[in-house]
């Protein structure tokens, strides 16, 4: 565990999110991820960022499941760091990697700045993330760039995966790029009039399974043209 902080102390951090059900992460780890998400894909005039899109929740669920355990990956030794071309060679699973790396990083921040990563100023957070990315910070347990690559990959997954996995809240990632989600039956026709924008409200698996969007006989969503925020879930 990276911290003795429990749910009770989580609510006491000013500006932190409300207490939430976590499946794997400790509250301190979740605070780290909230802060990292806010820097990696920030909220701005284009819309919500990874924090607002619940990417921490996505990562928490991933780490609690088979992915976090590297359940379908080869996990036998002997272990060696290998070359970059040889890929992931850590004896740690992704879940173990997050636990070790966040503890390392928060300890590093406390030693340097007398505060954990989540409480640093945005600029200091960016500086540290850049150092991780360049492998320019020595951590006691894990290799910085290995953890950064994992974190950044998972943050993008959480921002763009179907909301059924717990992130991409309100389909924020899809709205950002104009991705319609589950495909509709009118694509062949729409391909013939490509000069027309295909502006539709995105539809997620979650929308269909919860009955928020009707489907046709083949199972394709039936949707209208985009009309702003009326299709937001909440």
């Amino acid at each position: 565990m990276s911290s003795g902080a429990g749910p009770a102390s989580d609510a006491g951090i000013s500006g932190g999110p409300a207490p939430r059900a976590l499946r794997y992460l400790t509250p301190a780890e979740a605070r780290f991820l909230d802060a990292a998400c806010a820097r990696l894909i920030p909220a701005d005039d284009l819309g919500p960022g990874a924090l607002e899109a619940d990417v921490t929740r996505f990562i928490d669920r991933q780490l609690a499941g088979p992915y976090g355990a590297h359940a379908r990956c080869y996990r036998h030794g002997p272990w060696a760091e290998g070359t970059p071309e040889q890929g992931w060679q850590s004896p740690l699973s992704p879940a173990q990697m997050y636990r070790a790396a966040i503890a390392d990083l928060d300890a590093h921040c406390v030693a340097r700045h007398r505060a954990p990563f989540a409480l640093l100023a945005a600029q200091a957070q960016d500086t540290l993330l850049q150092a991780l990315e360049r492998d320019a910070v020595a951590l006691p347990t894990v290799r910085a760039e290995t953890f950064f690559a994992l974190l950044w990959k998972n943050v993008q997954e959480g921002f763009f995966a179907d909301p059924i996995h717990g992130g991409n809240r309100d389909k924020a990632g899809w709205r950002l790029i104009g991705f319609p989600g589950v495909a509709a039956a009118d694509y062949p026709a729409a391909m013939q009039r490509l000069e027309m924008p295909y502006a539709v409200a995105p539809v997620s698996i979650d929308d269909i399974e919860r009955g928020r969007v009707a489907v046709d006989a083949q199972g394709y969503p039936v949707r209208g043209r985009s009309n702003g925020a009326s299709d937001r879930r909440d």
């Binding site: 088979p66 995966a161 589950v182 698996i205």
Partner: peptide
């Protein structure tokens, strides 16, 4: 392969059991 689940990019590109189980053999 049912809609809408078959349009789940995360599952089908990373987690599906239709890919070789590398924990057994890689």
């Amino acid at each position: 392969f049912r809609l809408p689940g078959v349009h789940d990019e995360l599952h089908w590109s990373r987690d599906t059991d239709l890919m070789q189980d590398l924990s057994r053999e890689t």
